[in-house]
């Protein structure tokens, strides 16, 4: 045995192992969105589920992202066929009510689904406090770089995406993000 050479060779393995160990702490499924920090992509989508007063919007109304400037927007992509969406439904519906008197707008965006089924799902879940719009052809979903549902985007008063949450959103996370956005100094354009 040539021990000197053996030890040198053995030492070569160490950095490789450290590299893999670091890799184990990563999640390959978690891909950061490039959107936070950028202007929220615009959209003009038709309301299919009105929501409930005081947050209701008439069915058939067109919601434009540009018209929501000055308000904090919680954009939640969902579908009736999405099992995980059931987990966050109540949290979002109650969250929208809790912030009803603040400059916060909740908006559901239906992803790859039919409005009829979306409405049936809302009825089955016991109603939704805020309105939902339909996204035919998933054009807006692609504009937002959607991987799947549910995903929730937070847009600040200046119309910039500040945060993206993948998967069902926990109540504490929702509250935390909204409170920090509300505490931030208002943009000059606030009406």
């Amino acid at each position: 045995m040539n021990w000197r050479r053996a030890l040198i060779a053995g030492a070569v393995a160490i950095p490789v192992l450290f590299f893999f160990a670091w890799g184990l702490t990563r999640d390959p499924g978690e891909i950061p969105s490039p959107l936070p920090g950028r202007a929220a992509p615009d959209f003009a989508l038709e309301v299919f589920a009105p929501g409930e007063p005081p947050l209701a919007r008439a069915v058939g109304d067109t919601v434009r992202a540009s018209a929501l400037k000055g308000r904090i927007v919680v954009l939640n992509f969902w579908a009736s066929w999405c099992l995980a969406c059931r987990d966050e439904h109540t949290i979002l519906s109650q969250g929208a009510r809790a912030y009803a008197d603040q400059p916060v707008t909740f908006l559901g965006v239906l992803y790859n689904d039919e409005p009829r089924k979306g409405n049936a799902w809302i009825a089955e879940m016991g109603g939704q406090s805020y309105p939902s719009v339909n996204d035919p052809g998933a054009r807006t979903a692609i504009e937002y770089g959607l991987y799947g549902v549910p995903e929730t985007f937070f847009v600040n008063a200046e119309g910039r995406v500040v945060r993206k949450h993948t998967g069902p959103i926990p109540a504490a996370v929702l509250k935390g993000i909204l409170d920090s956005l509300l505490a931030a100094p208002r943009a000059a354009t606030t009406p």
Binding site: A79, S80, W81, L83, N112, D113, E114, K117
Partner: peptide, 13 residues
């Protein structure tokens, strides 16, 4: 039933 609801989603395309 839920699975068949998914089936419907395919129709969207």
């Amino acid at each position: 039933a839920l699975a068949l609801a998914v089936a419907g989603a395919g129709a969207q395309a």
